[in-house]
Write a protein that binds this DNA or RNA. Structure first.
Lengths: 206, 206
DNA sequence: ACAACATGTGAACAAGTGTACACATGAAGT
DNA sequence: ACTTCATGTGTACACTTGTTCACATGTTGT
């Protein structure tokens, strides 16, 4: 195993994965996609599918991994841009919404997968969300914003935050990708949700 | 139009609808169901389907209507049993969880539909949720619990409450229907979310 | 140079799909 | 009694589906 092949390895693999994302982006549901349809969209012969995936769920699981990368990129950008605490919510939600637009298909896939028909994919996405929750909790601790909360209460708060933001995905699904006005409404509304939650957290004592 | 037919009318229609619910209850996703599969499950010949529905989305829309009835029953029961304010959250969430178990398939269908592939079904479910939000706002006003909130802020609060409870559905999906312990955990966690939200609402001034 | 290997291709098959048509049956309205 | 109508059935057809197999091709390691 000296060096990688010259002829781009895994090219078909990527074509298949982004074919799924394309179809999902067009409004299709992952659960309704078949192997032939995906290979057709990818411009590949059906047999090639089996060179890279055992079945559609397998492909879905690998998409969850890529989704994880997307989420981590988003987190990093948020950490770089959210320096002081006063505009924390607006900045973060703004970054979320713009990432959700830039990677619309990934987030559509995520929203679908939470109630999809593959248990493994459900668990994968839930796991990504849990990771996100714990990272958010760490960040808030570091910013000294939640000193009065126990670890357990902080975790609950972050969980509720992440859930609320994730639910906004189902709102974003409902508007066309270029309806700036509606998207702005969703952004503002999500900010208000988070503000309400943080007010609750600030006065949470028991 | 003197009287109804003796031979139960719409019998096949009901069989088809509950066939879908049965399949959904078994873990299948609505978007992946086909006409033939549904009629097979219902013990009916494929052609009969077209006597009652134009296509699967049509059936889904009518399922949303039935879901509305289920939700209204749940609301009524909550209103009857939640008399004083102190145990409001625990009682309400308890009623929700027990209804979600008793009508598991309906709520699975609801969770699926929010990110499903039929825009019409998405809108239908969202509409049911909006109705629920406005009713909840009315009830809270009547209980004199939120006198300091403007209509708009009250609506936002109720929206967040309903969303958080709805998101719990995706948790309920993940546990088998008879895992009492896990379900109890979800129930308690959902209560804490709502408590946090209401603490926030109580201290919400701007 | 040669073998091993990963990857892509085409043809083939049995099974499943949506939908149309002609027909049966029994209730409703006249 | 007769027509009308809603509902259910069986057959049929053209198409799509998942999956297998034998085969081609170019890259890797020796």
């Amino acid at each position: 195993m000296s060096e990688r092949k010259k002829r781009k390895p895994g090219e078909t693999r990527e074509k298949l994965m982004s074919a799924v994302l394309t179809l999902v982006g067009k409004g299709r549901h992952f659960a309704s996609l078949g192997i032939r349809e995906v290979t057709r969209q990818a411009g590949v012969v059906p047999t090639s599918f089996y060179r890279h995936f055992r079945n559609m769920d397998d492909l879905g699981l690998q998409l969850v991994d890529e989704l994880g990368l997307v989420l981590r990129r988003m987190m990093r950008e948020a950490r770089e841009n959210v320096l002081q605490a006063d505009k924390l919510i607006e900045e973060s939600v703004g970054i979320f919404v713009s990432h959700a637009q830039a990677n619309r298909s990934y987030f559509l896939f995520m929203a679908q997968g939470l109630a999809g028909e593959s248990r493994a994919i459900q668990d994968g996405i839930r796991s990504e969300m849990r990771y996100f929750v714990s990272e958010l909790a760490n960040d808030l601790r570091r910013l000294k914003m939640v000193d009065h909360l126990s670890d357990s209460d902080l975790d609950m708060t972050c969980d509720l935050v992440v859930r609320s933001v994730a639910f906004s995905l189902t709102d974003l699904i409902g508007v066309s990708a270029d309806d700036e006005y509606q998207i702005e409404q969703i952004r503002k509304r999500t900010c208000r949700y988070l503000q309400l939650i943080f007010v609750g957290a600030a006065h949470w004592d028991r």
